[in-house]
Simulated assay, not measured.
Amino acid sequence: MIGAGVLPFVIAGCGVRDSESAQVAGGQGLLEDHGFAGAGASEIIDQLEALPVVERPQDLIASVTATSLQLQDDAGREVELPLQSDQFYLSVAPFVESTHECTFHSLTTCRGELRTREVTVKVIDSSSGEVLEAGTRTTRDNGFLGLWLPRGIAAELTATLDELTGSASISTQSEDDLTCLTSLQLA
């Protein structure tokens, strides 16, 4: 899918990235052609996550790292948009039976097992005990639910579906922290 581009991620179901900085080549045209002109990273992430899988662009790779949204289209155009310095995006695919490995969430190619299911989610800051997120969320058509969390925390995330529950430790402290949590098994 990706040619000899310089974007710092490799798509293999979801994304994996090295520490190089992305170069912007034809970025404005890419954003305009995909209906994202004038939109920031968080707006584009939310727009793509809300789309049903069949409506997600087939000619666009959109990967979320700890610090940016990276886009590349079939024309070889690339753009990297920074996330807000106080926000961290974590996409979570709770599962019961099947999952895949993932480090950096691909908004256009990642798929989780539990599509459009109501899941109760709680995120508790490990240092302060503060509840950062609590409530019922519905996984998107791709099986993921997105959480905008504060940057710089370690926390415990718990998800519950009917009588099944799972927990995972998460972090938003470093550039290498994952943005794609696919190891949260509900049992």
Rank of each mutant, 00 (worst) to 15 (best):
T160P: 07
E80T: 14
G143N: 05
L69V: 04
L90D: 10
A134T: 05
V119I: 15
D141W: 00
R151Q: 15
F104K: 02
V79E: 09
E163M: 08
I124E: 15
D86L: 09
C110M: 05
E156A: 09
F88D: 01
L164A: 12
T138A: 08
S98R: 14
R115G: 00
T108L: 03
N142W: 07
A62D: 04
D125V: 10
G146C: 11
R140P: 00
L157S: 04
P150Y: 03
L149A: 08
G143S: 12
E97T: 14
S98Q: 15
E80A: 15
V123A: 12
S85D: 08
D86Y: 01
R115D: 11
E118Y: 11
F88C: 02
H105I: 02
T138S: 09
T99E: 10
R117A: 13
E113L: 06
V96Y: 07
T136H: 06
G135T: 01
E78V: 05
P150C: 11
L83G: 04
G143M: 05
E133F: 13
L60W: 07
V96Q: 13
T120R: 15
L90H: 06
L60S: 02
C102E: 10
E80C: 03
S127T: 15
G112N: 07
E101W: 09
V64T: 12
L71Y: 03
G135F: 04
E97C: 05
L145K: 00
K122F: 07
